[in-house]
Design a protein around this nucleic acid. Sequence first.
RNA 1: GGCGGCGUAGCCAAGUGGUAAGGCGAGGGUCUGCAAAACCCUUAUUCCCCGGUUCGAAUCCGGGCGUCGCCUCCA
Length: 483
Amino acid sequence: MAIQVFNTLTQTKEPLVPLVEGQVSIYVCGVTPYDHAHIGHARPAVVWDAIKRHLRRRGYVVRHVQNFTDIDDKLIRRARERGESVRDVAEQYMAEYQWAMGALGVLPPDFMPRVTDNLPAILEFVSGLVDRGYAYARDGDVYFRVAKMPDYGKLSGRSREALRAGARVEPEENKDDPQDFALWKRAPEDQPGWDSPWGRGRPGWHIECSAMSSRYLGPRFDLHGGGIDLIFPHHENEIAQSEAYWGHPSARIWVHNGLVTLSQVKMSKSLGNGVELRELLSRTDPRVLRTYLLSVHYRSPLEFSEEGLRDWGHGLQRLRSLWEEVRALGPTSVFGDRAWLEELWGFERRFLAALDDDFNTARAFAECYELVRDARRVRSAGGPGAAVAGYLAKLGLAAADEILGFLDPEKVPASTAEPAEGGVPRWVEMLLAVRQQARQSGQYAWADQVREVLWEAGWGVEDGREESRAVPRAGRKTGTNAP
RNA sequence: GGCGGCGUAGCCAAGUGGUAAGGCGAGGGUCUGCAAAACCCUUAUUCCCCGGUUCGAAUCCGGGCGUCGCCUCCA
């Protein structure tokens, strides 16, 4: 059965039937790098990373484009405040964004086009719209004539009348109609600008995506993504431009991710309530954060909370501990019980089926936990079947991790939350050794005291049958103030 | 005011007509000197409220309440 994807345009799940068989083209709206990246930016990146990995797993060749809006009002303002060039400011935050995405295990898109590198394509697009009568120039600005598109509003479910009634925007003098929007803006002398048939200026916000998506993917492509907050006006305008220019729809399926909220309120730079990734990643396992973003369906809002993140990390530990237990296992000639064998073998099929259904990562995780439970049951029963079950669990977890990315934290940049990079400091080892002697001679009160000292210092002590070991306390920096 | 989404156990969260996944937490147990960690078991006769359709509804329809987003830059 084909992969089903919810299309904002039709408000229903549709089968994904790529334009080119075996190949899926994706354009996702990226960020404007004028400030630190926050969790809200991480969500679409992580979601699309999982989608991309799943499509590849299903055998598709994926072409993935995500842009950077490296010229806009906010960027210009920020550069002026700092006395730096727009380019330098953009460069700095693009680097930070890419660092954070790397830490989250996000595969880079195949192309990350910048507006400033695509001016010729943008100018050509604007000119084309003017030539076709869909746009008009006024004093160095160029506006799109919305009235020319009878079905304007089809993505956001608004009628032109409704938009007119609800208009809160001050009508600009130059526009023929308040709903018209800028394709090109005249640039003052002291701001960055490019020469154009209408004078020196720079692109409007929406035109870049129409121009760059078609340049990198062609006039038609399969999936277009972005945050749900971009539906209007950004994507609505993008549709109007592209359809006016090409004479046909450009993106086939529009996919929108829900927003990350904080204390029930949308996280956004303008509200100043963002949780910055560089700060969060400095004290959080990146893979815990990554999968936390995948723990709910991509279209649902995600209420971010430290407690929620911590709880999710606790749960993830069960997946990881089974992995540690079985990762070294190999195939065996021993056969197991037919019933549970079928159950374990069926994991990958169920897991992929969950993702086939509109990329339901929440359900995919539920399958993982059932795999752990099933495998544990068999293993705790002992006998030769334990090894078989362990091996099958290993295969299943590896397949799931391929897409969800909850394992192998050592493969991602080290988090400062990991004390001594997996190693236990010498002083901790020494205390443990001394404590061990105390325990063996029955001085438990003293042993408990040592355990408490280590706990305060950020180390948990686990006494096994053979030996004791120290593990870093979860979600806490070693030796510093407690949360 | 207009448009759209959501409301499922203490918390998070799947499920869009066939009789409530999963996680956290909690309770019980195994292991342990005691713990911790890990593991096992248990934990919603019921899905915001009121009507309706249906043999059957968390799921469909109507109304209400609550909540979030968009209508201005935003992932």
